[in-house]
């Protein structure tokens, strides 16, 4: 991994990730909704240790289905982050899911700004 990144390069990556995320969401809206629901469920409910691998497998499958060719979207990045080999500790799954939803919120805000949409409450 390069350690010579500049803030400008990171910003370019982030923009690229957001654009790739938008393409993925447009292409797989149902999987996107299921993925968010799945992540929210993991955050809000206790998980039996026996369910850990099936849950993570399902989540990683959904993330990969969103960006199967690895275009650098948020889903692509998190499919590597959430895989059991890189999560270090089972207790971190909930944190990673929270982080995923936090990034998807940032994506939604970016998308709203792109379309000049306003949230009506």
């Amino acid at each position: 991994m390069s350690i010579c990144l500049t803030v400008k390069e990171l910003e370019a990556r982030w923009e690229k990730a957001l654009a790739a995320t938008r393409a993925a969401v447009t292409q797989h809206p149902r999987t996107y909704r299921d993925l968010k629901a799945q992540a929210a469920e993991i955050i809000e409910n206790p998980i039996d240790i026996n369910d850990y691998f099936p849950r993570v497998e399902k989540l990683v499958d959904q993330l990969k289905a969103m960006d199967p060719c690895g275009h650098g979207s948020i889903f692509d990045i998190f499919s590597a982050r959430i895989s059991p080999s890189s999560i270090w500790h089972i207790k971190m799954l909930r944190m990673e899911c929270r982080d995923l939803l936090s990034h998807l919120n940032a994506f939604n805000e970016w998308r709203r700004r792109q379309h000049h949409l306003r949230m009506v409450k």
């Binding site: 991994m1 390069s2 910003e11 990556r13 982030w14 270090w88 500790h89 971190m92 990034h103």
Partner: peptide, 19 residues
């Protein structure tokens, strides 16, 4: 932006400890 970098973790001697 932290999401796409991870440089801090790559060089940290404490990476992986305590998950």
């Amino acid at each position: 932006l932290c999401l796409t970098c991870g440089a801090c973790s790559s060089g940290c001697p404490a990476t992986g400890l305590d998950g």
